[in-house]
Computed example of a mutant assay.
Amino acid sequence: MSFPNIYTHRKVAEAKAKSCDICYKPSSSVLITPDNKDWFYICPAHLKDPGFCTPKIDQAAIEARKKRELEEEIERVKKEYEERQKQKKNKEKKKEEEAKGEAKSGDDKSKDDDKADEDKRQKVPEKTEPSRSGASTSPAAEEEEPRVFELKSTFYNRRLSKKRQAEIARRNFETMQDPKFFPSVPKGFP
């Protein structure tokens, strides 16, 4: 019964926290193999210990995330550029209208002022949009921690032996439940 020495770090609910396999303190972090054959609770501090495990860095995932972030940045810059171009066009139109509008009455000027106020109100949510995109990048910063680990040989061998012992104990229990395991009572006279 062997399994790969690749463990993925997962979090469970605080209510489901159990004792760490190393120090026996309550922990909500779990290391689990990809095929779910082995798992155990571990403190996050142990994951940073170079004597316990080493992080496995997935270069393809890092490159894909950087590419995705770059594309998001490009889209954000394009939107900002388009907004600035619209604002420029609006300013040019206003200047042309003002040049033509000197002949307009005072009522028309008040309507233009109302339109300008509405434009300013619409611009406020647009300015808060970059902060939203900044908030979307903060979870990516949380994901900077490595999620895949490889245990050191001593700890991995300990996990293997623990699984073997559990398998042997299970087989022994099943064998003892079989009625043919024990000798039968003699039926004849001695």
Rank of each mutant, 00 (worst) to 15 (best):
F40C: 05
Y7S: 02
E71V: 00
C53L: 02
S161C: 07
R159Y: 02
R164K: 12
S153A: 12
P179T: 11
P34V: 07
K104M: 12
F149C: 12
F3P: 04
T8K: 01
C43G: 11
E167M: 13
K162D: 11
L151A: 06
T33V: 13
K25A: 05
H9T: 08
C53D: 01
K48V: 04
T54R: 14
S105I: 06
E83G: 04
D112L: 04
K163W: 06
E69F: 03
T137S: 08
Q85W: 07
K163Q: 12
V30T: 06
L47S: 05
S29Y: 00
D114W: 03
Y24R: 11
E174I: 08
H9Y: 07
P139R: 05
K37A: 05
S27M: 02
K162M: 08
D108V: 08
A13W: 10
P139E: 06
K37I: 03
S29G: 05
E92N: 08
P26E: 02
E144Y: 10
A135Q: 05
K79M: 13
F40R: 00
R76D: 09
A140H: 01
W39C: 06
D113K: 14
K180V: 10
D58P: 04
D21A: 12
K86E: 10
T128D: 07
P146L: 10
K66F: 05
I32G: 08
C20Y: 00
D21M: 04
L160F: 05
K79N: 11
K78T: 14
G106I: 12
E150W: 04
K11S: 11
T128G: 04
L70E: 09
K115I: 09
R132A: 02
G51P: 00
Q59M: 14
E167I: 15
T154W: 00
A135P: 01
F40E: 01
P179R: 10
K88M: 09
A99R: 10
P130R: 02
L160A: 06
P186G: 02
I62G: 13
K48G: 12
R147C: 15
C53R: 00
S2F: 15
K120E: 14
T137A: 09
W39K: 04
F182M: 07
I42N: 00
S27L: 01
K79L: 13
L47C: 06
E174K: 11
G134V: 06
E150T: 13
T128L: 12
G106N: 12
F149R: 09
M176T: 07
R84N: 07
P44T: 10
F173G: 09
F149G: 09
F155I: 03
F155C: 00
V12P: 01
E102I: 02
D113N: 14
K79S: 10
F189R: 13
D119S: 07
R121C: 12
F155Y: 06
P34T: 11
D49M: 13
K67H: 08
K94H: 14
S153F: 00
G101N: 03
K48E: 14
T8Y: 01
A103N: 09
S105M: 02
K93V: 15
F181C: 07
D21Q: 01
I42C: 01
K152E: 10
S19W: 02
G101R: 00
K94A: 11
K25D: 03
S105A: 13
E69R: 00
S19Y: 03
R147L: 15
P130E: 03
I6H: 09
Y81P: 01
S27C: 05
S29W: 02
K37P: 01
Q59F: 14
D35C: 14
K180M: 07
P44L: 06
K56W: 03
R132I: 06
